[in-house]
Design a binder for these strands. Structure first.
Lengths: 256, 256
DNA sequence: ACCGTACGTATTGTTGAGCAATCCGGCAAG
DNA sequence: CTTGCCGGATTGCTCAACAATACGTACGGT
């Protein structure tokens, strides 16, 4: 049953055929996923995807107000449609909706970063330790590492960051839960809001690439405990670095 | 449930508002939290709360179609406003939104149950193991157990189920992450959809109450490893029981 | 009887305008 | 400097309408 066609994310291509009660026609199997490709194009979904991309890419910096009338005219959609898209993004915490004031691109503070990294440590490390790593998930981890290394070699820093997020999504996928994947992917997207606040967002991910590679190797070798330990250290360092960045930033703003 | 302070609250009301506006006047401190209590009453939020409650309570069984025009007239709101509420509920997976067909109360299948319990095992056990249990969180666990025991003694089965969910929310709260709490609470609400499909939903939670008590004791004693093991068994059994219920159910429908 | 097609109806998708409620800025008064 | 007030602008919500789509049904061919 394709009851999951809602607008969850930009790339949620996973239907996962399930309990097939009685299908007499064998050659028809596997078409349930094709339906989604036909017309999953509601204006609200496309709108939410576009806005989400703009926010994640940094085109709309944190704190930016998204005025309804202006934005609706700009995007060529109705104000009501835009409001529906805003509700989705607010639920994803990419924007905040202040009553009678408007919607603003979210600004993450130190507490948010701590909160997110607390969750990441718990979930990612538990996923690594779970052990029952299905081969495709492990392959995806390795693929993400290779993509990141290639991007580093070619100095495409933005792609390095994207590959890093892909790596961590693959880590979470080790747990084998679609819901957990969605939750964490959303949180990683949220985390991107803070990258743009950093002084040098491009180089941020670069030092972690070789650690990703080490973690991938440990996972491939089944040494999950060591992988989890390295991963914990990784997350601790990244969190500390982001918190430093935020402290400087807020110091700038507060002191001036 | 009106007594329950931690009922499903509106989720859109969180602002990044930690921006401490330098307050020289000391007696004004602590008012920043009062603002939310004033007018946090948007129609969409109230609407979503009402629908969510109805769905969770079982007043709207899984599979029920929620026609926009009829529901809007019934609820005394505009169709657009209702659609915004539907977007929220769809994002919480309580309803499914099929394009050009409508929104339906979600029907969970066996794969959904497996997925949810995979996540629960990972997150709840990791939260228990985390170790750094803040006292208030532990107290909340014990309080949930006592509430459940009292409800059992008085044969208030529905309250038993509510207390059980409260217990597990408290377990997750051990991790100390607001985001993780929200995610898991949403998933537990989703899980309630499957309870109503069970043959005897009331008695379902009853056998687990004493296990909850045992887990609470182990946590209070700091024996987190044993607590996690008991919890894993708990979740395995509950999952198996739900899967049996779903199998019977689908057997009814499919075999006839 | 079987199959495919065309059509009519009901519902959803989206738009646009409109009004009340609310917030923000500035200005006058104490 | 604080307090109160007003005008402009924005949001919250409603209403009505049209276009696009899905579903049920009758029709015609074989």
């Amino acid at each position: 049953m394709a009851q999951d066609g809602s607008s969850a994310g930009p790339e949620s291509g996973d239907a996962g055929g399930s309990g097939a009660p009685d299908e007499r026609s064998a050659p028809l199997a596997g078409l349930s996923g094709a339906r989604m490709l036909l017309d999953r194009t509601s204006t609200v979904s496309k709108l939410a995807d576009a806005l989400r991309a703009q926010i994640i890419e940094g085109a709309l910096p944190p704190g930016t107000q998204l005025a309804e009338h202006a934005a609706a005219k700009e995007l060529g959609v109705s104000r009501n449609t835009l409001r529906e898209a805003f509700r989705l993004l607010a639920h994803e915490r990419l924007v905040v909706h202040e009553p009678h004031r408007g919607v603003f691109v979210r600004t993450l503070d130190a507490d948010d970063v701590r909160d997110i990294y607390t969750t990441r440590r718990l979930v990612e490390c538990a996923a690594v330790r779970a052990g029952d790593a299905p081969p495709p998930a492990v392959a995806e981890i390795r693929a993400a590492v290779k993509t990141a290394e290639l991007a580093v070699a070619e100095s495409r820093w933005h792609d390095v960051g994207t590959a890093d997020l892909r790596f961590h999504s693959a880590i979470v996928a080790l747990a084998g839960s679609r819901r957990l994947n969605d939750m964490m992917r959303r949180m990683l997207a949220e985390l991107r809001l803070v990258f743009h606040v950093m002084a040098d967002p491009h180089r941020f991910h670069e030092p972690y690439v070789h650690r990703n590679a080490a973690i991938a190797t440990l996972i491939e070798q089944g040494r999950t405990r060591e992988a989890a330990e390295v991963l914990t250290g990784y997350l601790d360092d990244a969190e500390a670095q982001l918190l430093r960045g935020i402290a400087e930033r807020s110091g700038d703003r507060g002191g001036g």
